[in-house]
Structures are given as structure tokens and as C-alpha cells.
Design a protein around this nucleic acid. Structure first.
Length: 414
RNA sequence: AGAGAGGUGGCCGAGUGGUCGAAGGCGCACGACUGGAACUCGUGUAUGGGGCAACUCAUCGAGGGUUCGAAUCCCUUCCUCUCUGCCA
């Protein structure tokens, strides 16, 4: 959630920032008004409560001193009565405020380029040249068929469309990649975690998936539980509503989880193959950082994810997202796009974001700095999306006969 | 899943209707003592919100209720422990 005090005190500046994300300033004016209304309502209610508390205290004193309480009782009853509408007003004001506030995206950093959509993202650099093939490179689903690595039909039978089954070498390569990623992240200082794949609504709200993006999530019937869309949710919320010690920062976490997404807005996109599935494996990095150091940790995370691709010999480019393409919670995001020769284009394989204090405010993750409690910065990034790495390896390491060479870095994991 | 017990501050643990945001202990911080340390003694030590100083509101697992007043009584719910059942 954005800092409402900041919005109130620096309205024009705040509105200017959110314009980059396409948020209309009228929405913010409304939010500001709701915030003022809540403060006003709370002030009134609190004054009445203070009076009530004072009279109740006096009441106890009268009782002890055996004084007559009948007159006081009348006063205190009247005050109590008068509090009812104030209570309702404050409750309604709070509800109205949060209904809007939780749907406002994070401020982008000032350095984030202007732009409406992914067309205006900025390529920062390319790493490794795509190699030229002496034959027409095949798409991964053709290679999957030739090698018997992926069974799309039975995935659909078992669940529904956008599910698939990995088998034989394909399944083993998936597992090898997970281990390789976890080991690499661990060597970079990330602690490894195995976390629940179902999280409750409070956690999903903490990282920003709820309440706005409920339609993207798989929910368990009759339970307050959702299948996680990314390990960012459990890893970041590990410290939900906790106050950390400054000396514990940064907390660097990594974990493998499957991720579940409804892909509600993606009907018709990437329907063929394994690019866009309802369930996919991912190894995630999450950092809980001191605000003064989140930038350097962000750079480290980008470098780490890029290095993994380089070690695997996968050509990729590093792209900074423009304001319009930035996710809801992110202040700054860098995507890594891997080269897919079969598709003849770069496709997203990692997304690394600094959410600054946006998630920390929602999830109440703070640290003690001297005497003061301050919000941490939270960062997350894939290192890497496993299924898409598998696809990238298939397409980049394919031979003319359709066979696939396992990259040297992975051979000891197979 | 059924039966019983219980959830109080960083930790342990008192508190069954008012002076309790909460005794006592441990831990921690500062000070005294010491050549230095331990011991001892003294002082302090939850979080969030509003004013941002005085002050004030909220919080004793969570949510609701009774009451002038709730850690304390009632209801719902979550969690933990023990026994039984089941399962990996």
C-alpha cells in the first residue's frame, strides 16, 4: 500500500509518480478525501471514547466510595448512546478508505522510463549472441514430441488445458534445473526454504495479489487458502507482522515451489506448448532489506539471475520495464528475456522487482532502527522460471535431428 | 475427525468485573560498585494510530456480545498440547 501521509502532504508529486502507471489523479483525490474523512471520524470517536473512559473510571471510584451514581449513570448512558453513530461513521470511513487504498499500485521509482506497455520497455544490454543454426530450429513442442519429454494430452486429461506432464529426460532435466538454481542461489548467500504451497488471504493481501487480483488465483473451496502464484508470497510473508532487528538485515531467501495461476487475462495467448501453464515450477529469490541497501541487493539479484543464464549458455537480454508495464507492487522491475530460436524471439524468463516499502506496509514487516520502527524494503525475483528454462535449453541446444544436448553446467545434476 | 486442557509483554509466569497495559522472575539497556569482569544495587525496558509536546485511543490468539466499565463473563473462530481415530 502507498504511504497515505505522503500522499496527503505531497499530493502533486505523488500524483505525478502514479501517472506513469496510468493512475488517474481523480482516483487519488478521492483517496485523499477518504483518508481525511477517516482521520476526522476517528478524532471524533476517540474524543467520545476518552470521555466515556474517564466517566467509567469515575464510576468505579464512586462505587468504592459508596457515592450516589445515579446522575453519573445518566450521563454515561447518554454519551454511550451518542457514540453509536460515530462508531458507524468511523467504521464506514475505514472500510471505504481501504477498499480504494488496497487497489492503488505502488509508486514507480523516478528512474523508471515512461511508457504505456511492454513496447516501450528499455533494453539495457544483451548477454551472449544467439547462435546461428545451419537448419531451421524447431519450437519446443516439436522437440518435446521427438524426444518424448512432454505429454501435453495427458496433462489436459488429468487436469484441464494449460497443464502438462513432463516425463523421462524432460522430468529429470526439470529436477536438475531446480537443484542447480537452488545451489547457485545458496552460493550467493540465499537461505533455502521449503514453504507451504497454500497461503491464506492475509498473506496474499500482504504481497499485493489480493484483493485486486483474486481472479488470477486458484482458491480452495470452503477454506481461506489459495494456491500460491509465486514463492514470493510465502517467502516475503515469512516475516508478516514481525519486527526484525536491523542487524538481521538483509534476509536473503530462496525456495523452489510450483506456482499456480489462472491466467485469466491470457485467453488465446501461448496456448501451444509449455510457455504459459496454470502450474509451473519456479525457484524464487526474496530479500527483506534495509531501505538504504535495497538498490544494491536489487542489482545483485539481477546479476545472479543473469549469471545463471550465462552459465547455462543461454543468450538473453536485460530489460527495464517502463511505467505502464510495471506490476502492481513494483517500484522498479528488470526482466530477463531468454532467446528462443524456435520462436525467433526473446521471452521473459525472470522478473526481478524492488517493491520498496509497498509490500512491507501491507504485510507490516518492520525493523528496529535505533529506537524507531521502520518499514523494510522487500524484493523478489525469479532465479529462474524452471519450465521456461527447460524450453530455452531445448530450443537453444537442439541438434538437426531434434536431439538435445544437455548443457555442461547441468551434466552433474542429471 | 472425536474428548479433554490451554493460548497473557523478548521469554517464563501471576492475574476471574473498576486503582490492570497488566505483579513477580528471567533476559536486555543504562548507571553505581570494580584495575577489569562476575556478583550485588539502582533505573529503564510492548506495538500500532491521532496530536507528534503534554495527552489520548486501541491491543492480554482473532472476531462478535453482555456491562457505565472486560485479560477476567457469554458466543463464534483459529492455533497449541494430551488421549483416541486416521494417514505419509
Amino acid at each position: 500500500m502507498i504511504d497515505l501521509k505522503y500522499l496527503q502532504n505531497n499530493f502533486d508529486e505523488a500524483a505525478g509518480k502514479l501517472k506513469k502507471k496510468g493512475v488517474d489523479s481523480a482516483v487519488l483525490e478521492n483517496l485523499q478525501a477518504l483518508f481525511s474523512a477517516l482521520k476526522e471520524a476517528n478524532a471524533q470517536l476517540e474524543a467520545a471514547k476518552a470521555e466515556q473512559n474517564a466517566m467509567s473510571k469515575l464510576f468505579g471510584q464512586y462505587m468504592r466510595e459508596s457515592k450516589d451514581i445515579s446522575e453519573l449513570k445518566l450521563k454515561v448512558d447518554a454519551n454511550k448512546e451518542s457514540m453509536v453513530p460515530l462508531q458507524e461513521k468511523a467504521r464506514a470511513a475505514e472500510e471505504a478508505l481501504y477498499a480504494v487504498a488496497l487497489g492503488i499500485p505502488n509508486f514507480p521509482d523516478d528512474s523508471v522510463p515512461e511508457g504505456a506497455d511492454e513496447e516501450e520497455n528499455v533494453e539495457l544490454r544483451k548477454v551472449l549472441e544467439p547462435k546461428t543454426f545451419a537448419f531451421k530450429p524447431k519450437e519446443h513442442w516439436e522437440l518435446a514430441e521427438i524426444n518424448g519429454w512432454i505429454d501435453f494430452e495427458r496433462g489436459v486429461k488429468l487436469a484441464k488445458s494449460r497443464f502438462s506432464v513432463l516425463k523421462a529426460e524432460g522430468a529429470r532435466l526439470e529436477r536438475a534445473l531446480i537443484n542447480f538454481f537452488l545451489d547457485t542461489n545458496r552460493a550467493e548467500g540465499f537461505e533455502e526454504f521449503c514453504v507451504p504451497f497454500l497461503n491464506n488471504s492475509m498473506m496474499l493481501q500482504g504481497t499485493g495479489q489480493l484483493p485486486k487480483f483474486e481472479e488470477d488465483l486458484f482458491k480452495v473451496e470452503e477454506e481461506d487458502l489459495y494456491l500460491i502464484p509465486t514463492a514470493e508470497v510465502p517467502l516475503t510473508n515469512m516475516y508478516h507482522d514481525e519486527i526484525l532487528s536491523a542487524k538481521d538485515l538483509p534476509l536473503l531467501m530462496t525456495g523452489y515451489t510450483p506456482c499456480f495461476r489462472k491466467e485469466a487475462g491470457s485467453a488465446g495467448r501461448d496456448t501451444r506448448g509449455m510457455i504459459r501453464q496454470h502450474q509451473f515450477d519456479k525457484v524464487e529469490m526474496v530479500a527483506i532489506a534495509h531501505p538504504d541497501h535495497s538498490d544494491e541487493i536489487f542489482e545483485m539479484m539481477v546479476r545472479n539471475a543473469s549469471d545463471i543464464l550465462t552459465v547455462l549458455g543461454l543468450p538473453h537480454r536485460v530489460v527495464e520495464l517502463c511505467g505502464g508495464d510495471l506490476g502492481f507492487s513494483a517500484a522498479k522491475t528488470i526482466d530477463l528475456e531468454v532467446w528462443l530460436p524456435g520462436q525467433n524471439k526473446y521471452r521473459e524468463i525472470s522478473s526481478i522487482s524492488n517493491t520498496r516499502d509497498f509490500q512491507a506496509r501491507r504485510a507490516k514487516i518492520r525493523f528496529k532502527d535505533e529506537k524507531q520502527n521502520r518499514l523494510v524494503h522487500t524484493l523478489n525475483g525469479s532465479a529462474l522460471a524452471v519450465g521456461r528454462t527447460l524450453i530455452a535449453i531445448m530450443e537453444n541446444y537442439q541438434n538437426e535431428d531434434g536431439s538435445i544436448t544437455i548443457p555442461a553446467a547441468l551434466q552433474r545434476y542429471m
